[in-house]
């Protein structure tokens, strides 16, 4: 059990002296990210919700705020998996088997299903089908 822990985060820029202090460091990081999310969620700055980015790409037409939220979520997911679930300490190919497969399937599902959702929106909004009687 007594395995070695990799005690550096941010690609080695921030090193901790032992495992406990690394855990608290990651906790502080996650708390800051959550606080930013909650702050933005409460304020909803006009500049970030009244424009849309990437309106020429089908499912990526979203407000900047949505992009920020998704990005921060992925940051949180990374640190939970890497430091709390000790993915950082596992063998490289155990990491790849789990993470690459999951990421591949998730992107695949998200793209397929959201494209379908947008198609349904277009057909039922601009088509000649009446669904509200």
């Amino acid at each position: 059990m007594a395995q070695e822990h990799n005690l550096a985060i941010f690609r080695g820029k921030l090193k901790f002296k032992d495992n406990q202090s690394k855990i608290w460091g990651v906790f502080i990081l996650l708390s800051i990210v959550t606080a930013i999310e909650v702050g933005l969620g409460m304020l909803r700055p006009e500049a970030l919700i009244h424009t849309k980015w990437f309106s020429f790409i089908p499912i990526l037409e979203m407000t900047p705020l949505t992009f920020i939220f998704i990005l921060l979520t992925i940051v949180k997911a990374y640190y939970i998996t890497w430091d709390f679930m000790h993915m950082r300490d596992e063998v490289k190919f155990l990491r790849r088997i789990i993470v690459w497969s999951a990421v591949f399937y998730i992107i695949y599902f998200v793209v397929l299903v959201l494209l379908e959702g947008q198609y349904m929106y277009d057909v039922l909004t601009n088509g000649f089908i009446k669904f509200d009687f």
Binding site: I59, Y105, F109, V110, V113, L114, E116, G117, Y121
Partner: peptide, 21 residues
């Protein structure tokens, strides 16, 4: 956990489909 994450993906993308629709 990998397969369970795909179950949750299924839930969340179908939610996403409905939101897009």
């Amino acid at each position: 956990l990998f397969s369970d994450s795909l179950t949750f993906t299924g839930f969340l993308v179908s939610y996403g489909l409905t939101r897009f629709r």
